[in-house]
Design a protein around this nucleic acid. Structure first.
Lengths: 332, 332
DNA sequence: CGTCCCGCATGAATCGATTCAGCAGTTTGG
DNA sequence: CCAAACTGCTGAATCGATTCATGCGGGACG
């Protein structure tokens, strides 16, 4: 088998024109006679010609791919984000390279290096703690970046107001009469963790209570169901008054916590209320439908990609609490 | 800002060596004196040098990225697959471009064209109906491909035995005493749809029954929760005896079906048993824990990538039915 | 009829990393 | 002591698409 790719040169030869003309057919078809254009196109079809993106990019200097680094592709929350990005990129005929950092700065750095070598048009990141410095390096190479779901004064970014999300969740639980609330948080170096905590504290203070009495925080190294379960065990096995409600960093963590509650025969929400975050598509279908803070991920992704392609200012979206049975026993 | 990328030439100049030597430092460091190597490395660091992947690939002819096209990145099933692929690729310092075909042959073709232009090292696809012909085009360009979760005599592939999966699910439902079973299937041109049906028929026949009496098939155009709900409505509103069990194409479809059962106040599994497919991580945590056919997605992805990098023969994995309350009322 | 212009096509130069024949200088061996 | 082998480095050629100064032929116009 002659597994040889046809080049513009081959096409030119077959069509009996010069390489420049072939290039014109590809990039400025209006500047070529109909007759020659057809001839060249036939030659391309006959040779199964695909233009070599490397050569194209090497010469032209610009790429039509965008790098996207999310914390966990396994989490539907982030794939929804990716969808939004893809939607926007498709409009401008760009594509995306999707990478999963697994919240590991090492891996993230590795991907950033790779994307830099690829000469991507730009990079969209849900940043881990140590990201921002490396993005400076990229900018120096002429590669713009947009932070997603995060805020920084030195970078363009799109975000959701996590302070508001934390406030809404905790206000709701306080309204339900809870006075000892467990916050199953992510690592402290994650901005989301801190912002939601701030919102939580604001909510407690607004109710005229003392945050140190009301809130108990457990930081989980990973945001998985197993970690959520482990975190709840840790909190329940702790001596002292047990919490009566849990605010989880995301729905998957909440899933793990609910699993443990069930193991212990505790009723949700009577013995322990639960509020999650992200409102994943199955949240309403769980054993106990899960209250959750909904985030407009698709729009967020769209906005991030748009920012990269069109240079807009910073954008912030508002989350919205969805109350279900897991935190309100009057609900179905 | 001088957003100018440094090239090997710049590095060579700064280090006082030739470009060939810089290239040697990058690719054959053992063939360079320690002294010059250090000097070159310092120059690279000082200039914040990143090698240009386009130029590299243009010359070398080989790429270190692999294209992956899955049917739906929103489905955790496929992201798990992607994880397995990534695991294997990382071992050989390759990376992946992840694309979502959304079961749309048009989109798939678009991505294949793009990947061909990128000159990827290979392509891994969960194929839609019309894929195989296009893969022939790729092969003619020297780009190998591996079908995932599918089988074809003309292509290397990794797959799960869907006949077995269908057989296991239906055998189980027959054992539970069901004699009218609804199969909420995907499009008929999807291989998985047909194979599972074949397994279902085998199971019915093995029980000495007539498949046309027992099985009712509804083909859904998309495998979403909403479609699952719609499919169930269609079947229930149909005159004639209603089914007593549902076998869904995947857990998300099952989710939609269960939603409708709940709306109608039907009990699961007493009024209607449900068995899903894929055993997504939340299947055990649903309102009624969902029986499901588990597939080793991560291994499948790993095997697919391995196949591409090392040229092994065809691999088939076995699925495993996990029985939960949704299809067995003696279960918790 | 000559000049100018315009539309269309040409092909050499270019991008940056890699490769490889070749060169200078050193070591080995007979 | 000289040939051969080896080491470490050089720099021109190369990959394929794009660009742009240049050429060419035909039509318009004076």
């Amino acid at each position: 088998m002659t597994a040889q790719r046809a080049s513009v040169k081959d096409v030119a030869q077959l069509a009996g024109v010069s390489v420049g003309t072939v290039s014109n057919v590809l990039n400025r078809p209006e500047s070529v006679t109909e007759k020659t254009r057809v001839r060249v196109e036939q030659a391309m079809a006959q040779l199964n010609f695909h233009r070599n993106a490397s050569a194209r990019q090497l010469r032209a200097g610009v790429s039509r791919t965008v790098g996207v680094i999310v914390m966990d592709v396994g989490n539907p929350y982030y794939t929804e984000l990716a969808r939004g990005i893809e939607d926007r990129l498709a409009d401008d005929d760009h594509t995306l390279i999707l990478c999963s950092s697994d919240e590991d700065p090492q891996r993230e750095a590795q991907f950033l290096r790779l994307l830099a070598e690829q000469g991507v048009r730009g990079v969209l990141v849900t940043p881990t703690a140590s990201t921002t410095q490396r993005l400076g390096d990229l900018r120096r190479l002429g590669i713009p970046s947009v932070l997603m779901d995060s805020h920084s004064t030195q970078h363009t970014s799109v975000g959701v107001d996590h302070v508001s999300g934390g406030r809404q969740a905790i206000s709701h639980l306080l309204d339900q009469g809870h006075r000892r609330i467990l916050y199953l948080a992510g690592p402290t170096d994650l901005q989301q963790t801190r912002h939601r905590l701030r919102g939580a504290i604001e909510a407690v203070q607004a109710a005229g209570l003392d945050p140190t009495d009301v809130l108990r925080v457990v930081n989980l190294p990973n945001l998985t169901a197993n970690e959520g379960q482990r975190g709840l065990i840790e909190a329940l096995d702790d001596p002292g008054p047990a919490p009566t409600a849990v605010f989880a960093m995301n729905d998957i963590v909440a899933l793990g916590a609910m699993r443990e509650l069930r193991v212990r025969g505790l009723s949700i929400p009577r013995d322990m209320a639960v509020v999650g975050y992200d409102d994943l598509y199955f949240a309403a279908e769980l054993m106990t439908p899960l209250s959750s803070v909904r985030q407009p991920m698709r729009q967020l992704g769209w906005a991030a990609a748009d920012l990269l392609l069109t240079e807009h200012p910073h954008t912030v979206f508002q989350p919205e609490l969805i109350v279900r049975a897991s935190s309100d026993f009057r609900r179905p």
